[in-house]
Write a protein that binds this DNA or RNA. Structure first.
Length: 167
DNA sequence: GGAATCCAAGTCGTTACATCA
DNA sequence: AGTGATGTAACGACTTGGATT
């Protein structure tokens, strides 16, 4: 039931390529997503199509591949945004808690142990962490998101005594 | 500079399929 | 269960405009 090659002078629309034709085109597209004129002619001959049809198929395929990839990227960025929003919320909360602690120095001793940066609550200087590895992502705390320069790493403030030990 | 060619982007018309009354 | 109307995604083809040769 093939209406292939009706050969009319004004070969109007010929919709729906056969499964075999589509498969061969897909296979060829996987190898190279653009065709030079020689490849186009050869492929058209092999498929029993006009070179123009092969050309159009490749143009459409590129466009639709790009569209699909854009959708995937968009979805990924959406998830990144959600994660960053959540991290931002968490950090804001942490900052608020630390500010509250700063106003109540008697609670310094009850703070959890430091993990990353150290800061003197009086002079507000940040000291280098005991080990630089502590500031790096680890297997236990991977950072699956792409690097985002606008997102600061979590900050942990050390108690006053840690920066100004009594001799 | 103008013609020819290629490609991306946007669009249109058709087809296949799913859903519903 | 069969059927026609409707909506929608996929697809082939076309048009247009920019870039390149």
């Amino acid at each position: 039931m093939s209406d292939e090659e009706d050969g009319g002078e004004n070969c109007r629309k010929k919709l729906r390529l056969t499964k075999d034709q589509s498969a061969i085109l897909e296979e060829s597209f996987k190898e190279h997503n653009t065709l030079n004129p020689k490849q186009k002619m050869a492929l058209a001959k092999r498929l029993g199509l006009r070179p123009r049809q092969v050309e159009v198929w490749f143009q459409n395929r590129r466009a639709r591949t790009k569209l699909k990839q854009t959708e995937v990227d968009c979805e990924f960025l959406k998830r990144c945004c959600e994660q960053l929003t959540e991290e931002n919320r968490r950090l804001q909360k942490e900052v608020a808690e630390l500010r509250a602690l700063k106003l109540s120095p008697q609670f310094y001793m009850q703070m959890p142990p430091p993990t990353t940066l150290t800061m003197c609550p009086s002079c507000e200087r940040v000291a280098a962490p005991p080990s630089s590895a502590a500031a790096q992502p680890s297997a236990a705390h991977p950072r699956p998101l792409p690097v985002n320069p606008w997102v600061a790493a979590p900050v942990t403030i050390r108690p006053f005594e840690a920066l100004h030990p009594r001799s």
